[in-house]
Design a protein around this nucleic acid. Sequence first.
DNA 1: GTTAGTTCGTCTGCCGACTAAACAAACTAG
DNA 2: CTAGTTTGTTTAGTCGGCAGACGAACTAAC
Lengths: 406, 406
Amino acid sequence: MQTGPQPADFADVRATNLAVVLRHVRNHAPCSRADIAAATGLNKATVSSLVADLIERRLLRETGLAEHRIGRPATMLVLDGQPYAAIGLAVSADQLTAVAVDLAGEQLLSWRRSFPALASSPGKAVSAIAALASRVAGRVGSQNRQVLGLTVGVPGLVDSDGTVRLAANLGWRDVDLRADLVHALRDPKYDVAVDNDANLSAMAEHRYGAFAGSSDLVYLTGEVGIGAGVIVDGRLLRGGRGFSGEIGHVQVDPSGPVCPCGRTGCLEAMAGIPAIIRRVLPDAEADGPITDFAPEIDEVVRLARRGDPATVDSLAAVGRHLGHGVAILTNVINPDVVVLGGNFVPLAPWLLPAAEAELAARAVAPEAGGCRIVASTLGAGTAAVGGAARALATVDAGHLPPPPPA
Amino acid sequence: MQTGPQPADFADVRATNLAVVLRHVRNHAPCSRADIAAATGLNKATVSSLVADLIERRLLRETGLAEHRIGRPATMLVLDGQPYAAIGLAVSADQLTAVAVDLAGEQLLSWRRSFPALASSPGKAVSAIAALASRVAGRVGSQNRQVLGLTVGVPGLVDSDGTVRLAANLGWRDVDLRADLVHALRDPKYDVAVDNDANLSAMAEHRYGAFAGSSDLVYLTGEVGIGAGVIVDGRLLRGGRGFSGEIGHVQVDPSGPVCPCGRTGCLEAMAGIPAIIRRVLPDAEADGPITDFAPEIDEVVRLARRGDPATVDSLAAVGRHLGHGVAILTNVINPDVVVLGGNFVPLAPWLLPAAEAELAARAVAPEAGGCRIVASTLGAGTAAVGGAARALATVDAGHLPPPPPA
DNA sequence: GTTAGTTCGTCTGCCGACTAAACAAACTAG
DNA sequence: CTAGTTTGTTTAGTCGGCAGACGAACTAAC
């Protein structure tokens, strides 16, 4: 119970303790009521009451399995994944990705739909997003699951109201996506949110990644641009207007090339995926903005595996630039880990050594402030998974679904 | 009441609500019990109980003055500054600064003592700091005030245990200042903490500055080095190991001069106070590390006031570098305001225009993400005041001094 | 098979903290 | 001097966590 501007009452205590129990079960399942009481310091009777409440809300479930040690066997508790699901949806330049995740972290579905954002208007995009979300919600509903929330990730600046201020790679400016979606979905019962894709990916890593639980974590997107999702002290860093993590257009080399944004030597222009491809595969035709880099990245990986010197050197140079960017983050924010995502993942074996060396050289704190650079292990759709994670995180934070009316 | 790993109980509710009332009175004094109830949503009876508790702890006081509107006159409440004081102490390369502040924000004393840190050992520094703290505590005690806490600010990397990992400008490395101080002060009743001077200055600005209450604020020190104290969402950003805000050695110009840290083109080497003085006053003798820049800064200000073109140009160039640094902070953190402190304050009229222009050009978000650059108005000793503010902030957060035993 | 010992989870009584509503106090308006 | 207003306290009530007792269910050992 931290200091908040709001006064506290019993409901807050109850919500806090319900969330404490729920998180404990999520992190230590299966476990018994006695385990929870011992670990949290709550009274056994209180835990019993809280667990009963959570079972009534169908967030927890008793398993038949009992550990047979000495004494009375414990009735074990696990998360009940069945009755709920959270939906995450990610918009990129060429496709929409939707996932649904249940409370226990099981991915229920993962759908992709190609959608050329630059070739359509934001209005059409809203319709397409709403249609996809609606279909996912329908599927989830047909499994008798209640939707806990829908979060849409967008590669761009999203303010605290859910308005997309600027998404260069989608060609959007001042699109009030959240309100439009709520309207298109006809005021759904569940919560609708819009956030930056890097922020959501960071939430996904924070909840499901190899460094899950690390309270100071940064995720770097490797799509058309480079964005950072920053988690500090276990919470997303948003800044005054929600425009944090825009590391892609920080200058890392004043003598570097001109970036499409008009500035010079941006990290994105030096180490972004398009820059890597141009550098390694100068012959690749670049007619119009490329949006899907998979074939080219595959080719780069092939060349690197084969040990092609120019490719390896190029990737090392890119790694150094990334290390420079990570060093800026380390010096300013001092995260425990920086996770490289997107198209950086397959390239990581050739990027990381150079990046780590550069980080060590540029970081002020000894041992780079304890900061590690790793590749994401979550696979594709991280931002969408993070969208689902956001809704689940609100449950963990105490915003529980109401108990059944019956 | 935010989500925390800790379960909550009644004591937490009480502490939270006591803090709510205390903060309300601090921000809206003088005010009546009825005002508090109306503004916070707490019940009148609850407010009465909370106020009685706070009066017993001598944190609040009733004033005789009553507002005579229609109806029964209200008995007004104000903070009772008398019984408590918090001590802040700042270490710099050439002196120690100590201040004591009461609960109402009144500065009770401000002492300076010259102390050549580089010429003495860390051990002697600990003795000197402890002696000064002890004298301040004695003076405060002789006024029948209880000391709420002592916080020491150090220009360098301080980890979460209060150990100074590296303070280049003091010549310190791995000095466990907090433990040493606790020992030298013989386990004082009050809380002892050590923190980075920029962090503490940021707390001072957050509590007493022109932008007090802004929940996303950065303070830039302008002493020997440049450090950032970062407040995000109303809380200090510390990072995984407490090494955040080290913006001084981020590279802003790869072709810049070599910095004493060994890197090239650090912000500090381009826009630090020594760099400014070298640039504007090339004739100033620089025998050994300068620690007190006051005379030189005065001279720079004189030249700038006179309109000396070389000086004005130099300051504009420095302003551009500062703007570059601020742009990095803005893109990564998106604060509402960046406060320039220390020796930047008298130079601000000539630095700010260039800095703002550079920020606008380099910030990704429109209108620089709403970020403003301003000069501190708190005067000298900001870090020490921030040290006191830290202890007072723990009271605001609910860690109240115990009620009197009587 | 019985008994002792252990552990689990519930039950009971208690206490602390907030709420609602009634009420006394103290003032202004007319 | 009365009516009306506002303040702050009092009283009763509810809620939720806590402590300890208790029954339940099991293992271990004789």
